[in-house]
């Protein structure tokens, strides 16, 4: 057994175990953190496949941004576990059907004649200075430039739509407008006026104030 296959089996074990814990953990925050662990482990497996750009992008996007926001939401929820478990037996039959369908599909791919390991030889090892990122960028911006641009526009529309759908302005709420606050200058708020000095007091008046 080579070193990379030991690493592969160790990572696979962690990946499967943490993926199982995502659906079995009672605490939703723990489940979300196990999902983070499975993302990181999957990134490790992709690194073994020499797909370093995809692996790092997985960590950067899913672990660094998506799951943080997900944790935000999960942490704020006050989840009642009993109510979540209410419909368990009702959903069991459709869930089993879906699970069986997924299992059958994966078995068809992995055990089938056309996808077996024999018909897919391992790719030739790449030289050490081969940059996965550069190749991917070159392909995305030359051969696949139109699909790539269309996907980008669709994502942009989705972002704008998501914000527009959830944005509700309450008319009666009071809020500050930072853009107006930062343009404020001192002369808008404070006015310095010069006052005439009072009439100078006599020495007698001053001693009376101190003693009396």
């Amino acid at each position: 057994m080579t070193y990379s296959s030991i690493v592969f089996y160790a990572f696979s074990l962690i990946l499967v175990a943490s993926a199982l814990r995502v659906i079995t953990a009672r605490n939703p925050v723990h489940a979300a953190l196990f999902l983070v662990l499975s993302f990181v482990t999957a990134a490790g497996l992709w690194l073994l496949l020499e797909a370093e750009f995809l692996a790092i992008a997985l960590v950067l996007v899913y672990v660094g941004a998506v799951m943080v926001l997900f944790l935000f939401v999960v942490m704020m929820l006050d989840i009642n576990l009993d109510r979540l478990r209410e419909g368990y037996w009702d959903y069991l039959v459709p869930a089993l059907v879906v699970a069986f369908a997924m299992l059958a599909e994966m078995a068809a791919v992995l055990w089938g004649k056309y996808f077996s390991l024999g018909s897919m030889p391992p790719p030739a090892p790449l030289p050490a200075n081969y940059s996965n990122t550069r190749e991917l960028g070159r392909l995305l911006y030359t051969d696949y430039v139109y699909p790539f641009e269309i996907a980008a526009v669709i994502l942009l529309v989705a972002i704008v739509a998501a914000i527009a759908l959830t944005l509700r302005r309450r008319k009666d709420s009071k809020y500050v407008d930072p853009a107006r606050q930062v343009v404020v200058r001192r002369r808008d708020r404070v006015r310095i006026v010069s006052m005439a000095a009072e009439k100078p007091r006599t020495a007698v008046q001053e001693t009376e104030e101190v003693t009396g």
Binding site: L33, V36, E52, F53, I56, A57, V59, L60, V63, G64, A65, V68, L71, F72, M75, N129, Y130, S131, N132, T133
Partner: peptide, 22 residues
């Protein structure tokens, strides 16, 4: 001395937020 060094730094540092949030 890895080819994707800058990406690696970005990915690793983006995980720092977990310590704070947890």
């Amino acid at each position: 001395n890895v080819n994707a060094g800058l990406l690696y730094v970005m990915a690793i540092t983006s995980m720092g937020v977990y310590g704070v949030i947890i």
